[in-house]
Nucleic acid binder design. Structure first.
Lengths: 194, 194
DNA sequence: GTTGGCATGTAACTGGTTACATGATTAG
DNA sequence: CTAATCATGTAACCAGTTACATGCCAAC
């Protein structure tokens, strides 16, 4: 009974993408860019070294598979890698959640700003988050076919992303509307007893 | 006319906290922990070196101010630091937004899980996000006084955090309810044409 | 007397991005 | 012919966390 393999952050997405059918490091990167990028990224500088580590540990198998004159290495999960992926997916270790938000940091310090400066900031934040929503929607177009092929979960994750960013956009749009009307940042009626 | 100083990520929160009244590196850390931590952290390993860099650049002034036998250095913003803070707050550079979410990554790969494994995951995610809401609420208790003193914006940022995490919790709670009822991850009626 | 808070600091490590370099193949 | 895409890889850098070390003071 080998001790459970603890996957590095990058290994999680690498093994998962191999399971979903990615074959090369290039493949993994390409798929990540149009799917998990917004909540779990991976760069070449991470992927290639990680694939080697995983091969050394026996979680993946490498096979040279040149396409014409282009060097190409195809990877696939070994049974051990398959188990490690499932183990991670079903473990109840505390889930990583990282959130870094400069718009919110500026808002936090906004008491030093004048009303028009504050409004300009809120406007910018609203616009940027709306752009994110638009990009998510583009990705979503075409996801419906995957569901027919039994891959519902990527679609669900995408829906989550779209709805979350919509919520954020709406929050800023609401604040923008109130500030444009001349309201204070916090009206007495907003105060809720917790 | 000195070229505009580009603030490092940590400098942004350090200067901001000095403006809000923090005096020492220890102060900054303490305040960050109960306020911006969830969307903009800072560790000692960042704060102390950063304060020195800022002093070297003339954005802050250091003064030895021991308390009894405890060595203590008090920092305050120089006019140049004041300007750099305002410049950052009013600039329209693209806002940093980073989001890393392991719960969502697992959901993305969840097609390999059985219904009960999926439900267990969703349950865990819902529980963890509810805990975050609870922690935010604790911080919120007592924030009302600050508003009376004209510091509305930290309160607004906190409200944002609470409401965002409530939204996330509710999203998972809804999914959990549907899965517990035996629904598929995506019901045909969920499919929206974008 | 010992715990907890105040206060400062650093070394080692981890994780990740960016930029660069190389080169074949395919489509226009 | 040339631009885009496929494919692999590395070096340099940046940011950040964790763990450790030190030591005073106040409260219990």
């Amino acid at each position: 009974m080998s001790a459970a393999v603890k996957l590095t952050p990058t290994a999680r997405v690498v093994l998962g993408m191999l399971k979903l059918g990615a074959q090369t490091g290039y493949d993994i990167k390409r798929i990540v860019e149009v799917s998990t990028r917004f909540f779990w990224g991976a760069s070449y500088g991470q992927i290639y070294p990680e694939l080697r580590r995983l091969a050394a540990e026996g979680l993946v198998e490498a096979e040279a598979a040149p396409r014409g004159g282009i060097a190409r290495t195809v990877y696939r999960l070994t049974p051990k890698g398959e188990r490690a992926l499932r183990h991670w997916l079903t473990s109840d270790d505390e889930l990583i959640f990282e959130y870094r938000d400069e718009a919110l940091l500026k808002l936090f310090f906004a008491d030093v700003l004048g009303p028009d400066e504050l409004l300009a900031h809120v406007r910018q934040a609203r616009a940027e988050f709306q752009d994110v929503v638009a990009r998510f929607r583009d990705i979503g177009a075409g996801a419906e076919e995957d569901i027919a092929r039994g891959q519902a979960s990527p679609y669900v994750a995408l829906r989550y992303g779209i709805e979350l960013m919509e919520w954020v956009s709406a929050w800023y749009a609401d604040l923008e509307r109130r500030l444009a009307r001349g309201d204070a940042l916090v009206e007495p009626k907003d105060l809720q007893s917790s």
